[in-house]
C-alpha cells in the first residue's frame, strides 16, 4: 500500500521511467497541485514502509508477550509434555527462508546494473523459496501431533508461527506482483523502488522468522 505515493516531490518524478512528463495537463480550470517541498532526505514510501514495519514488530511483540506470560510467568513446560518440536526440519526451513533474502538481494543488485535476466531469476527464485518455506511450514502443522486447542503451549506455537506464516503469505503476494512486473519489463537501473520497498518487507519477514525460530524452537 505504500506504493500509493502521489506527489512527493519534484526531483522525484524523473526517477521513474514510466512517469512521462506532460500527462497532467488537463486544460485550465483543473491544474495539479504545486510540487511539495522535500523537507527530508528520506524517501516518503521508504519511510512509510519503515513505520509500517515498526507497527508490525509491535504486533509480533504482543504475541511474544503472550509467549512470555505462558512460558515464563506461568512457568509452563516447553514444549508441552509429550510434544516434540521438529528443530531440524524447521532449521532447514530457516536456511531456505534466509537464502531467499540473498536471492532477493541479488535481484536488486542485478537491476541496478540493468541486468534484467538477473532480476527475473533473482525475484522468481525468491518467490519459489518463500513458497517452499510456507509449504514446509504447513506440512509441519499437519504432522506435528498437537493442535492449538490442546493446550496453551500449542496456542502460542501456532499463534507465533501462524502470525509469521501470514506475513510470509502477504510477502509472497507482494513478491508475486514484483515478479509479474519484472517479467513484463518494468523496472530499470534508475527505477527500482518498486522492488526495494517490498524487498525491505521481505527482509523483515526473514529476520522476524529468525527470532521466532530461536524463541519457539531453540531456547
Amino acid at each position: 500500500m505504500e506504493a500509493a505515493a502521489v506527489p512527493i516531490g519534484h526531483g522525484h518524478g524523473h526517477a521513474h521511467g514510466h512517469d512521462a512528463p506532460g500527462h497532467d495537463h488537463h486544460g485550465h480550470e483543473h491544474h495539479g497541485p504545486p510540487p511539495a517541498n522535500k523537507s527530508s532526505r528520506v524517501d516518503a514510501p521508504m519511510l512509510g514502509m519503515l513505520l509500517f514495519i515498526i507497527s508490525e514488530v509491535m504486533v509480533f511483540g504482543a504475541f511474544f508477550t503472550a509467549y512470555f506470560f505462558i512460558r515464563i510467568v506461568q512457568g509452563q513446560e516447553w514444549p508441552a509434555e509429550g510434544d516434540h518440536l521438529p528443530k531440524l526440519i524447521a532449521g532447514i526451513n530457516t536456511l531456505i527462508l534466509v537464502s531467499s533474502s540473498f536471492t532477493l538481494h541479488w535481484a536488486e543488485v542485478s537491476i541496478k546494473e540493468n541486468n534484467r535476466r538477473g532480476l527475473q531469476a533473482g525475484i522468481a527464485s525468491t518467490f519459489l523459496l518463500g513458497a517452499t518455506f510456507l509449504f514446509i511450514q504447513i506440512n509441519e502443522y499437519v504432522n506435528i501431533g498437537f493442535a492449538p486447542q490442546d493446550h496453551a503451549q500449542g496456542t502460542i506455537f501456532y499463534g507465533l508461527t501462524g502470525l509469521h506464516g501470514a506475513h510470509v503469505l502477504i510477502g509472497l503476494l507482494a513478491l508475486l506482483t514484483v515478479t509479474i512486473r519484472a517479467f513484463r519489463g518494468h523496472f530499470s537501473a534508475h527505477d527500482h523502488r518498486g522492488i526495494e520497498i517490498p524487498g525491505i518487507y521481505w527482509h523483515f519477514v526473514d529476520v522476524m522468522w529468525i527470532v521466532v525460530y530461536l524463541t519457539v524452537y531453540i531456547i
Binding site: 506504493a3 505515493a5 502521489v6 506527489p7 512527493i8 516531490g9 519534484h10 526531483g11 522525484h12 518524478g13 526517477a15 521513474h16 514510466h18 512517469d19 512528463p21 500527462h23 497532467d24 491544474h31 495539479g32 497541485p33 504545486p34 510540487p35 514510501p45 523502488r193 518498486g194 520497498i197
Partner: peptide
C-alpha cells in the same frame, strides 16, 4: 493565473 503552476507537476506513481 498559475504562473508557477504550469511548469512542474511531479505526479509520480510507483
Amino acid at each position: 493565473a498559475d504562473a508557477a503552476g504550469a511548469t512542474h507537476h511531479g505526479g509520480t506513481e510507483t
